[in-house]
Simulated scan of single mutants.
Amino acid sequence: MIGMAKACSGGGSLLNYIMNDRKGYELFRNNLCGLNPKEIIEEMNMIQDLNHRAKNKTLSLVLSPSIDDGHKLSNSELKKMTVEFMEELGINADNHQILAFVHTEKRHKHIHIYCGRLNMETGKMVNDHFIGKKAQWAAHRIASRLNLLSAKQIMFCKIKANQNEGFTIPKSTKDEIYNKHLKAIERQYNSLEEYFLVMKTMGVEVQPSVNKQGLIQGYRFVNVATKESFKASEVNRKINLKDIVGKPIIETNQKPKIKFRHGS
C-alpha cells in the first residue's frame, strides 16, 4: 500500500481529474452536496474562505493498495481504510469537506481524496508539515494492521535481499532510529551538538530531557517525519550518549573526522 499527500490550492483541473466517471466511481463524501466539480469547489470555497491566512487550503491524498489487495477489498473496507488514513493525518472525516473517488482504470485500484484543510468544528487547519512523509508511514501502519502489503515492506525486503554485512532491517521506528544512531557514531565528535546535527540530517531530532532542577537527565529521539518520540533507553538500552564525545569509534584511516563550520 502506498500513501501520498500534499497541500495544494485545489481547483477545477484536479477535481475534474478525480471526478471522472470513466476512471472509476465515488466511494463516499462528507459535508458536500454538489453534483459536479464546479458546484463542489464553490461549496468548499465558502468554508475555506473563512481562513484568510492559509495559501494552500486543500489536501490532495492518494491511497493505493497493492494490485492483489485492491482486487480483494470491498467498498466498505476501502472506505474504512480511507477514514483511518485520514485520521492518521489528523483529519476527522466528520468535520471536513471530503470527496473520495476510486479509480479503477489501471491495474492498481487506488483512492483519490479531495479534502478541505479547515476543520468545520474547530476552525483550525490541518497541519501539512511533512504531510507527504506522514502519509507514507500512515499507509504502512494501516497495511500492517489489516495484514496488507505496504510499500515500505517491499522496500525492506529488497534491502534485506541485498543487505550489506552489519546492516539490520528496521522492524519499527525504534529500529530505524537505532540504525541511524549506529551510523552516526561511526564518526568522532568534539561535542554532543555535532552528533545532534548529524542525526538531524538523517531525520532524527535528539532532545535533552530536563528535570525540575534544570539538569539534563536523559535524551529523547524524535522521528521528524512521523513525530514519534522515544526515550533513548526505549530505542535501545545500549545507547549511551556520554561515551560519544572524544571517543573514536572507528580507525581514523577508515573515515575522516567530520568538520563543522561555525554557525552551521
Rank of each mutant, 00 (worst) to 15 (best):
K6F: 00
A7Q: 06
C8Y: 00
G11H: 00
Y17H: 10
Y17C: 01
Y17R: 06
D21W: 03
N31T: 01
C33Q: 08
L35N: 12
N36L: 05
K38W: 01
E43H: 01
N45W: 00
N45F: 00
D49E: 05
D49C: 02
L50P: 00
L50T: 04
N51V: 00
N56F: 06
K57E: 01
L59S: 03
L59K: 02
V62D: 02
P65G: 10
D68W: 04
D69G: 08
K72F: 06
K72L: 12
E77R: 09
E77A: 06
E77S: 05
M81H: 08
T82E: 09
F85Y: 15
M86W: 10
E87P: 03
L89I: 09
I91T: 10
D94I: 11
I98V: 14
L99Y: 14
L99D: 09
T104W: 07
E105Y: 06
H108N: 15
K109W: 08
H112E: 07
H112C: 04
I113Y: 05
Y114D: 04
Y114F: 15
G116W: 00
R117M: 07
R117G: 02
R117K: 14
G123Q: 07
V126K: 05
N127E: 13
H129N: 12
I131N: 04
K134D: 07
W137Y: 15
A138S: 13
H140G: 05
H140Y: 14
N147V: 12
L149D: 11
K152C: 11
C157G: 15
I159M: 12
N162T: 05
F167N: 10
T168D: 11
I169F: 13
E176K: 15
Y178T: 04
L182A: 01
K183H: 06
R187I: 05
Q188M: 12
Y195L: 15
F196L: 05
V198Y: 02
K200V: 00
M202D: 13
V204F: 03
V206I: 15
S209M: 11
Q213L: 15
V222E: 02
V222L: 09
N223V: 09
N223L: 07
T226N: 10
S229Y: 01
F230V: 01
K231M: 03
I239E: 03
L241F: 09
I244F: 13
T252Q: 12
N253S: 13
Q254G: 07
K255A: 14
I258M: 12
K259T: 14
F260T: 04
R261S: 05
R261G: 07
S264N: 06
